[in-house]
């Protein structure tokens, strides 16, 4: 298998962009109706059956989108193979960290509820 894909990465980038657009639009539509959040309301939202999965989806799409974009930047500007793999590894670790942290936070709230 090739390490870097052509069309597949491009499709992931476009699909995640579309998903993010939909989520941003949803947020923009919902926000005017939202009351100022206090801690318990925020936890209820993030731990809810709708809010939790939506936040997870948002970060999932963000991370997938960011990976393709950062990969493209690395492929353009960093030519030495070793440096390239090191930076790509770092980017992957950061994004997996983000994903893990968000999922853990959401799970923590959902379990407490």
């Amino acid at each position: 298998m090739r390490l870097f894909t052509g069309q597949r990465a491009w499709v992931v980038q476009r699909l995640s962009a579309l998903l993010l657009l939909v989520l941003i639009l949803l947020a923009m539509l919902a926000l005017p109706f939202a009351s100022p959040l206090d801690f318990s309301a925020w936890r209820a939202l993030a731990g809810g059956a709708l809010g939790g999965p939506l936040i997870a989806l948002l970060f999932g799409a963000l991370c997938a989108h960011a990976w393709v974009g950062m990969r493209d930047i690395v492929l353009d500007y960093l030519q030495p193979r070793g440096l390239r793999l090191a930076v790509l590894g770092l980017i992957t670790v950061v994004l997996l960290g983000v994903l893990a942290r968000v999922l853990l936070s959401l799970a923590m709230v959902a379990l407490a509820a």
Partner: peptide, 18 residues
């Protein structure tokens, strides 16, 4: 790139706020 840099911070803020 700026948004990518902001992403871990955003995740940390989300974590702390919950």
């Amino acid at each position: 790139v700026l948004l990518f840099i902001a992403l871990p911070v955003l995740a940390a803020l989300l974590h702390a706020s919950l």
